[in-house]
C-alpha cells in the first residue's frame, strides 16, 4: 500500500473519477476526491461514463437511484461498465446495487446493476434509530494500526460471498457471529458504511490504489 503523495497521478496524468450523482451523498465524495488531487465527474447520464478511470456509487436510497438510472437508460451502460472490469466502489446503497443477490428489497423488486458475487441484506440492522458508528481495524490500509471510524446508516450487510471475493472488514456481533461489511472482488469494492461522512481519506486512497493497479495492467 502506498501513501497519499503517490496517488496524485501516474505519468503526470490526473485520474478522472466519476461519482454517480442521481441521489444521495454525492458532494461529500467529490470534496474528498478533489482533496486527493483527482478530476471528479458527476455521472447523471450514460455519456458521462466516457473516459473515466473509476466510478463511485455513493450512499443514498438504492430504490431512488435504481429508478432514476432506469428512466434515462443508465442501467445497461452501468452493467457493461462493471462487467468490463473497470474499477468500481459501491457504498451502502451502491453496495446493494452492485450485489448479484438482494434480500429484503422493495415489494415487486428494484432495478439493480449487479456484477459482484455477493448476497446482501438491505437494512439489516433495522431502522435509523439502530444506525451506529464503531471502530474497525482494516488490514489493507496503510497505517493499518490506526483504527477506522465506520458510520453505518440504515446499513446493509453482506450475507454470502463466493470464492474470489475478499473480505476487507467485518463486525463481531455476539448473536450472529461475524457480519461482513466490506469486501473486494477484482476491481470492485463495496462498503456497508460511509467513509464520506468522516475526514478519514484511507478508503478513498485504497480505491485510488485500485484504479492505479487497473491502469498499470
Amino acid at each position: 500500500m502506498v501513501g497519499g503523495e503517490e496517488l496524485k497521478g501516474q505519468h503526470g496524468q490526473r485520474l478522472k473519477i466519476g461519482v454517480l450523482a442521481l441521489q444521495g451523498a454525492v458532494v461529500e465524495h467529490c470534496r474528498m476526491l478533489e482533496s486527493l488531487g483527482v478530476i471528479v465527474v458527476e455521472v447523471r447520464l450514460p455519456e458521462h461514463l466516457k473516459l473515466l478511470d473509476g466510478l463511485i456509487i455513493p450512499g443514498g436510497e438504492s430504490t431512488s437511484m435504481g429508478l432514476i438510472a432506469e428512466r434515462w437508460g443508465l442501467i445497461e451502460p452501468l452493467r457493461s461498465w462493471v462487467q468490463s472490469g473497470r474499477p468500481t466502489w459501491g457504498i451502502c446503497a451502491g453496495m446493494i446495487l452492485l450485489a448479484e443477490r438482494i434480500e429484503d428489497q422493495k415489494q415487486g423488486g428494484q432495478p439493480s446493476i449487479g456484477g459482484m458475487d455477493i448476497e446482501v441484506n438491505r437494512n439489516y440492522f433495522g431502522r435509523q434509530i439502530n444506525s451506529f458508528e464503531t471502530m474497525l481495524n482494516i488490514d489493507d490500509f496503510y497505517e493499518s494500526e490506526k483504527p477506522y471510524q465506520a458510520v453505518f446508516i440504515r446499513a446493509p450487510i453482506i450475507t454470502e460471498v463466493s470464492d474470489g471475493v475478499k473480505i476487507l472488514a467485518s463486525l463481531t456481533n455476539g448473536l450472529d457471529g461475524k457480519l461482513i461489511v466490506a469486501a473486494r472482488q477484482k476491481l470492485m469494492m463495496v462498503t456497508a458504511f460511509h467513509p464520506e461522512l468522516t475526514d478519514d481519506l484511507r478508503w478513498h486512497q485504497l480505491f485510488l490504489n485500485m484504479v492505479h493497479e487497473s491502469r498499470a495492467t
Binding site: A21, L22, Q23, G24, A25, V26, V27, E28, G59, G60, E61, S64, C92, A93, Q128, S131, F132, E133, V151, F152, I153, R154, H194, L197
Partner: peptide, 12 residues
C-alpha cells in the same frame, strides 16, 4: 449518525 442520515437523502 443522525446528520449522516440526512446526508443520504440529498438530491432526493
Amino acid at each position: 449518525v443522525k446528520s449522516g442520515f440526512a446526508q443520504m437523502l440529498k438530491g432526493g
